[in-house]
């Protein structure tokens, strides 16, 4: 089995749905990072059969809501001194602002300048969000 050494200080993003790891790397711009980062793909998992893991040897800041849109199954562990100091289960955010854009060509957001694109979660199972202006539904939302 492939082995990646544990990190002393940094972040471990675990339980990423197999195949989404690289998209998450790109979203977090970790593919251009100056510090050590490891993407481990197709790791055997009891819960999901296969998963991806990202290990980051630095403490970076990111928006948990946006990460939840990419993959709500993710868990994030913050490591310091070789020990987990905080663990977060990412969830689909109930509200998102300026993350996704309304695709309804009849929506006011399609013509108005300087307008925030706001959405509310309608159905977590189908990842369906509702535009707060035109109330159009968008299913299988991802970024």
């Amino acid at each position: 089995m492939l082995t990646v050494t544990s990190i002393k200080k940094g972040i471990v993003i675990d339980h990423i749905t197999a195949g989404l790891g690289f998209r998450l790397m790109k979203y977090l711009k970790l593919n251009k990072a100056s510090f050590p980062v490891a993407l481990i793909s197709n790791v055997p998992s009891k819960k999901y059969e296969k998963k991806d893991i990202i290990k980051i040897q630095d403490l970076i800041e990111f928006d948990l809501a946006k990460i939840g849109l990419i993959d709500p199954n993710i868990t994030i562990s913050f490591i310091d001194g070789g020990r987990t100091i905080r663990k977060v289960n990412v969830q689909l955010p109930n509200k998102v602002e300026d993350v996704i854009i309304c695709k309804n060509p009849r929506c006011i957001t399609s013509i108005e300048k300087n307008v925030s694109h706001k959405f509310e979660l309608v159905d977590g199972k189908t990842k369906t969000y509702k535009c707060c202006y035109c109330e159009d539904f968008q299913k299988e939302i991802t970024i």
Binding site: R106, C107, I108, S110, Y133, C134, D136
Partner: peptide
């Protein structure tokens, strides 16, 4: 455009009545 009155209400100091949006 749909949702225009919702948007307008955020910037209006007076009540907005929607007379039809898209």
């Amino acid at each position: 455009k749909e949702g225009a009155p919702v948007f307008a209400s955020k910037y209006s100091e007076v009540p907005i009545i929607n007379a039809g949006d898209g």
